[in-house]
């Protein structure tokens, strides 16, 4: 029993850490601001979720009682991550960050900054 528990917890820990590392690699290497926004805000959320769930499972068996505390952090991060991403995207539009040269529909970013419909002048 403890063996299976250890294997499951170790697997979740390593998986979570790898996902978070990939998110950070994305932050370091992707070409422009909006693509950089994608990798960390979501990959990191899933990765930290994996690690928190591993900790939750381990302590539930280790202490012999239900331990759901880490679940609260997971939920909180999943609720706040899109809001933080949305605010960061708005800040990027405001700052008029440089877009990657071959971004498709580049002119839509100017429309989005002015809160206009795409067919409006």
């Amino acid at each position: 029993m403890t063996n299976i528990l250890e294997i499951v917890v170790s697997f979740l820990l390593v998986l979570g850490a790898i996902i978070m590392l990939i998110g950070s690699i994305g932050l370091a290497k992707l070409p422009d601001y909006f693509t950089r926004l994608h990798a960390p805000t979501k990959a990191s959320t899933l990765g930290v979720g994996c690690i928190l769930i591993a900790s939750m499972v381990y302590f539930s068996f280790d202490l012999g009682r239900l331990n759901l505390k880490e679940f609260l952090i997971t939920m909180f991060l999943f609720i706040t991550a899109p809001i933080a991403a949305h605010m960061l995207a708005k800040a990027g539009l405001q700052y008029k960050v440089k877009l990657k040269e071959d971004t498709y529909n580049k002119d839509l970013s100017a429309k989005a900054y002015l809160h206009k419909a795409p067919d409006e002048d």
Partner: peptide, 23 residues
């Protein structure tokens, strides 16, 4: 908009003023 943002690969940026378009 949160669902769109949470699924990686897409990230909602801005709404138009008349709430007809999501960028």
């Amino acid at each position: 908009t949160s669902s769109v943002s949470l699924t990686p690969g897409t990230c909602s940026v801005e709404l138009s003023d008349d709430k007809q378009w999501l960028y």
